[in-house]
């Protein structure tokens, strides 16, 4: 499933989507950045409630397909700037992490 297909299926908020056709190969959920770097694989969707600019750095160096900010979290201004700079797909959902990941597991 591509990032844009997922965004449509789950009615996600699109904060930034420079690479809509990227294929999502799996996912990881977490807010501790070193753990994310350890576990997340290239092509994964990363579900988090962190919204600072380090999120863009970690997503970029991990080659994540997209970042999904859960629980209605909005990206900080600096995160949006970094996401634009580094070409990161940045999506959002008002849903809490647990049902959101359940839905993602079903779809992916």
């Amino acid at each position: 499933m591509t990032v844009t297909e997922l965004a449509q299926q789950l009615s996600l908020t699109v904060f930034h989507m420079p690479e809509p056709q990227l294929e999502i190969t799996g996912g990881y959920t977490g807010d501790l950045l070193s753990r994310v770097m350890c576990r997340m694989k290239p092509g994964h969707i990363w579900v988090t409630i962190m919204s600072n600019q380090n999120v863009a750095a970690v997503a970029a160096l991990s080659d994540a397909a997209c970042v999904l900010l859960a629980e209605g979290v909005a990206p900080d201004e600096e995160l949006l700037i970094k996401a634009r700079e580094r070409g990161i797909n940045l999506l959002g959902s008002s849903r809490t992490v647990f049902p959101l990941c359940g839905e993602l597991s079903r779809l992916l």
């Binding site: 501790l32 950045l33 070193s34 753990r35 770097m37």
Partner: peptide, 15 residues
């Protein structure tokens, strides 16, 4: 508060 402090940085570097 920024998401650091898991104590996984050095292990990640080794890995």
């Amino acid at each position: 508060d920024l998401g650091f402090g898991a104590g996984m940085g050095l292990p990640n570097m080794k890995r």
